[in-house]
Computed example of a mutant assay.
Amino acid sequence: MRAAFLRLCLTWLLLPLLLAGCASVPAPTDGWQALAPGLRYRAWSPWPGSEVQALQVDLAQVRPVLSPPTEAGQTVEAMASGQGALASVNASFFDRDFRPRGLTVSAGQPWPELLQPAPAVADPVLACALRCVILLQAPVTPEPGWQLAVSGTPWLVRDGEPRTAEDDTLCAYLCARTHPRTAVGLDASGRTLLLLLAAGRRGDVAGLTLSQTAQLLRDLGAWQAFNLDGGGSSTLLVSGSSRLPRPFNEPALRRVANALHFFPR
């Protein structure tokens, strides 16, 4: 009887410690960190020497905006259109005058003096009206109702199939060599936008090939995806602060043609 009583007392004494131990076990995680309602962030190293970051955007809760032509030639950090944004990334390829390549629309208005792709070739485009779509061959002119359009090259994921290393051989310098990267994808439902950025030109951290970039975007759930301007242009701001490590040869943010900003709806 005395032994049973002692066991009962010991159990009550140890119970708080046992409960505290259970409470301290970390909850399962998929690597994503919530930045705001509808916006999640992830950073990881999928291969030795790689540094990758991603944004997952719920388009029902977060609104994408493309910076206007008046801000072309500024760093993403300096753009007034990004003030108060949850996050921002660089976007279009551009020429020396900061004119974007491909179909480009901000606030429902096409950009003037567009740089057109080569004849009979239409770059992929992300376009948003009431909903967002990725077209791997953009039309010559914006479709009615488009509030945002931003182009890039080349395609990364087509109908759920990522490009391969063999595809990369067709554009050896841009595709098959490792570089810092910025890329965009959309899931099959059209409700989730995915942004992937890779650091590079940092000693052992060289960057990614495009087939590697495509594989990661597909793993994250992209159904359609394409490449945006990369290299020294690759920029990720979260609440106005730079997150993506810079190339050693270009420590300051580069001036770019435009940027995608993300705001709460």
Rank of each mutant, 00 (worst) to 15 (best):
V89E: 04
V105T: 08
P69F: 02
L208G: 04
A129L: 12
T29Y: 09
G102R: 03
G221N: 05
F93D: 03
F226V: 04
D58Y: 04
T104D: 04
V25K: 09
A23T: 06
V105A: 11
F248V: 08
A54R: 00
G240H: 04
A43M: 04
P26H: 11
Q137F: 10
F226I: 04
Y41Q: 01
P68S: 06
L210A: 09
G160R: 08
C171L: 14
A118V: 06
A36Q: 07
L55N: 02
L136W: 10
E166Q: 13
L156Y: 09
A257N: 05
V140W: 09
P100S: 04
L39P: 00
A172C: 11
A120F: 15
L244P: 00
R131N: 14
G152Y: 03
A27H: 12
Q74M: 11
L39G: 00
W32Q: 03
W12R: 10
D168L: 09
P48R: 10
A54K: 01
L228P: 01
G221Q: 05
P245A: 02
P48S: 13
F263V: 03
G145H: 08
A72S: 15
A91N: 00
G230A: 00
A107W: 08
A60P: 04
G190W: 15
L115E: 12
G84D: 09
G240N: 04
W32R: 03
W47E: 15
L14S: 07
R246H: 00
L217V: 07
L86C: 03
R101N: 09
A60L: 14
C22P: 01
